[in-house]
């Protein structure tokens, strides 16, 4: 599948798709989207890049093994659930900043939770796909 067109296109598609995935992630609290879908879109972006340029290239680009995203994401989600407990609230109580931000709306623990989900989904799906294609 290493056609020139796809290679060229993927160069621009990767950042675009990643940006789009982050957009989907952030708007998830108000409109369709969220961590799951965002994460899946991001991993598709990387897989597309890998198809066009070969896996080693994508690996280089990512620098770290995608598997590391899983513990990071799990930890982030867990901590954002744990955070309210430091303020003497029950586990998973939502806590927000007062000011609103464009697109994202209120920034709160739920957002960090969703970012954690996003990272885990990217990590898991890329680990699966990369491992399988490397073993061929």
């Amino acid at each position: 599948m290493r056609t020139l067109i796809l290679q060229t296109a993927s160069k621009y598609l990767l950042p675009l798709l990643l940006l789009f995935s982050i957009f989907i992630l952030l708007r998830g609290h108000y409109l369709p989207g969220g961590g799951f879908v965002g994460g899946l879109i991001a991993s598709i972006a990387f897989i597309l890049h890998a198809f066009a340029n070969g896996l080693p290239q994508t690996r280089n680009l990512m620098r770290i093994h995608p598997g590391f995203l899983m513990p990071v994401g799990l930890g982030l989600s867990f901590l954002s659930g744990l955070f309210p407990m430091f303020l003497n609230r029950p586990f998973m109580t939502g806590i927000w900043f007062a000011e609103k931000v464009a697109v994202i709306g209120s920034i709160g623990t739920a957002l960090f939770f969703d970012i954690g989900v996003y990272l885990v989904v990217i990590g898991a799906s890329l680990t699966i796909i990369f491992t399988i294609s490397e073993s061929n």
């Binding site: 989600s77 998973m92 699966i128």
Partner: peptide, 29 residues
């Protein structure tokens, strides 16, 4: 403070379930 009810259920109301679900996904990977 969320307007997409599905997403709010996932990340807030039933967030503990979601943590376990992403843990399962990680285990599969």
């Amino acid at each position: 403070k969320g307007k997409n009810v599905v997403n709010v259920i996932l990340v807030d109301f039933r967030g503990a379930d979601t943590i376990v679900e992403i843990a399962v996904l990680s285990i599969a990977a």
